[in-house]
Amino acid sequence: MAKAEETVLEIDLNALGHNYNFLRSKIKPDTKFMAVVKAYAYGSESVAIANHLQGLGADYFAVAYVNEGIALREGGITAPILVLHPQKIHFATLIEHQLEPSIYSLSILSDFIATASTLNIHEYPVHLKFNTGLNRLGFSADELPDILNLIHQQKTIKVIAVLSHLAATEDHEEKEFTNLQLTRFSDICKQVDSLFEHSILKHVLNTSGIINYTHAQCDMVRSGIGLYGYGNEPYIDEQLQPVMTLKTIIAQKHIIRSGESVGYNRKYTSEKDTVTATLPLGHADGIGREYGHGKTYVSVHGQLAPIIGNVCMDMIMIDVTNIACEEGDEVIIFGKSLPASEFAETAQTISYELLTGLSQRIKRTIVH
């Protein structure tokens, strides 16, 4: 990988392939694999990620919103794309780009049927989402009669799949609740199978579900964070490879004398002569103020340097007193040697939030 000359997010497609193959190895050969590439592919670059995964054999893709699906279509993705949270205003555009909606309520179902009917669509594929305990989006099981009443009155849409979302597959203390969700989903699937004449695709497992509840893989699994190198558990992280490495450079060094302060609001005061380095990224890039005050470290020539004082909008300052370095030298914010999960933990958050919060002003570079 090239040495950084500016702030850059390197996206390693070889690592992506490794993670995809690892997760694929956990499921049956005929189980479909849905790659979740919402939120710019978890902060990376959705078109490059999706194209690589499509080449590796991913069966399906998932995004949160319609505009994300359109970007994939325009970027060359031909595989089916599920929109997890479609909005009524975008239904016609969704159909135009051959995206598949996750239908989660009777009102959304009615509105989608109405839009499809206006466009003279016949048997448009949809997924029905059921709430089994996450209590975020989804039909309840007792709404099945009303769902069927709406669906059997028309030929505009065709239910091709049912899904649900598990709440705590990575938490071993919540195994009983996860099994309860899986039982609820299984019961729903049995009812659906008895009510439809054609075969219905079922999918419920996420990344941690693939690892911890493989027996419930159904017809398809969905993976997001695992593809990008994080498995929510240390022993899984060891078998995955971080896809993203955030790099920057030292813009300037300073000698801070004892008693002098650094940064806004003078939140760091040196107790002895200290050498600091200023880096060209900050909370506008997704490295929030919560990472300051000596809690979080970056890597300079393989040595850890704490972030000191308040993180600024475009700059952070680090302590490099005991590290031999010069202006222009590369600094690793997180990556293979300093995982995003560990970086995020210092601010009591998770890799998902850190990665998806990376600003689009950071240059993305694809590497093999």
Rank of each mutant, 00 (worst) to 15 (best):
K32W: 01
V47L: 05
F196C: 07
S164A: 13
D273Y: 10
Q239Y: 10
G224Q: 07
A48T: 03
Y40Q: 15
L240C: 01
A50H: 04
E197Q: 15
E68P: 05
Y20M: 07
R364H: 11
N120M: 09
L166V: 04
C325Q: 01
D237C: 10
L13M: 13
L246M: 06
V126L: 05
Y42V: 09
Y213V: 04
F139I: 05
T276L: 05
Y104M: 11
A35F: 00
A4E: 00
L84W: 11
Y235G: 09
L56D: 00
Q239G: 10
V275D: 09
S105R: 07
L94Q: 02
Y297D: 12
G17D: 03
P242L: 08
T269G: 11
S337K: 15
Q239A: 12
A340W: 03
E100L: 11
P339K: 04
L99D: 00
R24V: 08
K247F: 06
Q191R: 13
S199N: 12
L150P: 01
L99S: 05
A58Y: 02
I188N: 01
G335M: 10
F185T: 00
S140R: 13
L56W: 01
H203D: 05
T214P: 03
I188E: 05
L354G: 00
H52M: 07
L128Y: 00
F112Y: 10
S44Q: 14
Y213I: 09
Q154H: 08
G226I: 02
P29C: 07
A62Q: 01
V37G: 00
Y124P: 02
P29L: 09
N19L: 06
G294Q: 11
A161W: 03
A62T: 01
